[in-house]
Design a protein around this nucleic acid. Structure first.
Length: 281
DNA sequence: AAACGTGCTCGTCACGACAT
DNA sequence: ATGTCGTGACGAGCACGTTT
């Protein structure tokens, strides 16, 4: 099963290393507002690469989408992440978003950041799980307290957490407001923390290049720079893939919405046709 | 059981866009 | 001009299912 590492994946698996062109094309076809996607067979690889590389980032596209369609969540700017308020789901400008997972679960993101997961197939109470992301109260700087009621057998329900954040299980519930601790009972408390420093562990700032003398020192400096660059690029790739997934999810939800709209409009058209041209027998 | 195919994630490279 | 960032492309590795 391809979702063996991800409990929360969406209906259509996405081959991450290929463009999400199919879905984009579907959205464009339905909405008839997006630019038409070019056939991959027609353009040569170099041209295709040029076109792809000039495409705006997923964040930009998604934010444009969100301005067009009210139901599409917005990806916050990285800036907010750096400032200690990670762009988690709770901060999205979403009235109420509903998604469906690959396992048929429905996820509703309500105002106030409450996420409800429900299994349509199972009985209501057992299938309902709640995840609350709290940004209020007095958490430590840069921390977001996450509560969740994992009611699955193994309690390993995973959630999609945007941003390159760290999930830390709290030994104590000291960081959570007392009323929250009372409400959670025996549930474990987790923190999602933005990385405290841009520098990864084990990376030590070397002396300034001006103080380097021997070729060995220069080589070490070059190696250090390369490792740092690789480390940053690794993180960037992870973040990029995360955004891409989110982008695809939004496209999927938009497809669903547009399909419903389309269906309604067709029905309306048929109704109007019947009214305007009644049968004359 | 071994071989093979498929689908996925991850790290890396390359390169354009953008910022300074 | 140079550095940084974002992202497509590629290949390696892994897990799992199917075939022999």
């Amino acid at each position: 099963m391809w979702w063996h590492q991800h409990n929360l994946c969406f209906r259509h698996p996405v081959e991450e290393d290929y463009s999400s062109g199919d879905l984009e094309e579907k959205v464009a076809t339905i909405a008839e507002t997006d630019e038409s996607a070019e056939s991959e067979g027609v353009i040569d690889s170099h041209k295709r690469r040029e076109i792809l590389s000039r495409r705006p980032s997923y964040r930009k596209i998604l934010n444009e989408l969100s301005s067009d369609v009210p139901g599409v969540p917005k990806i916050e700017e990285e800036k907010s992440e750096e400032e200690g308020t990670p762009p988690n789901i709770a901060t999205m400008a979403v009235p109420t978003s509903i998604y469906q997972t690959s396992t048929g679960q429905y996820i509703a993101i309500a105002q106030g950041g409450t996420i409800q997961i429900s299994n349509p197939g199972s009985d209501g109470v057992q299938g309902l799980q709640a995840l609350t992301m709290t940004n209020s109260g007095a958490p430590p700087p840069g921390a977001t307290i996450v509560q969740y009621a994992a009611q699955s057998a193994d309690g390993t329900q995973q959630f999609f957490v945007p941003g390159s954040q760290v999930v830390v299980q709290d030994e104590e519930t000291e960081l959570a407001p007392s009323h929250m601790a009372a409400a959670t009972g025996d549930m474990p408390t987790y923190q999602i923390r933005a990385p405290t420093t841009g520098l990864p562990q084990g990376v030590v700032m070397a002396a300034s290049p001006g103080s380097l003398h021997s070729p060995q020192q220069l080589a070490e400096e070059a190696t250090r720079k390369r490792e740092l660059r690789l480390m940053k690029n690794r993180e960037a790739a992870k973040e990029c893939r995360r955004r891409k997934k989110e982008y695809v999810k939004c496209l999927e939800s938009r497809v669903a919405v547009l399909e419903v709209q389309n269906k309604k409009l067709i029905e309306e058209l048929e109704t109007l046709k019947d009214i305007c041209s009644p049968k004359t027998d």
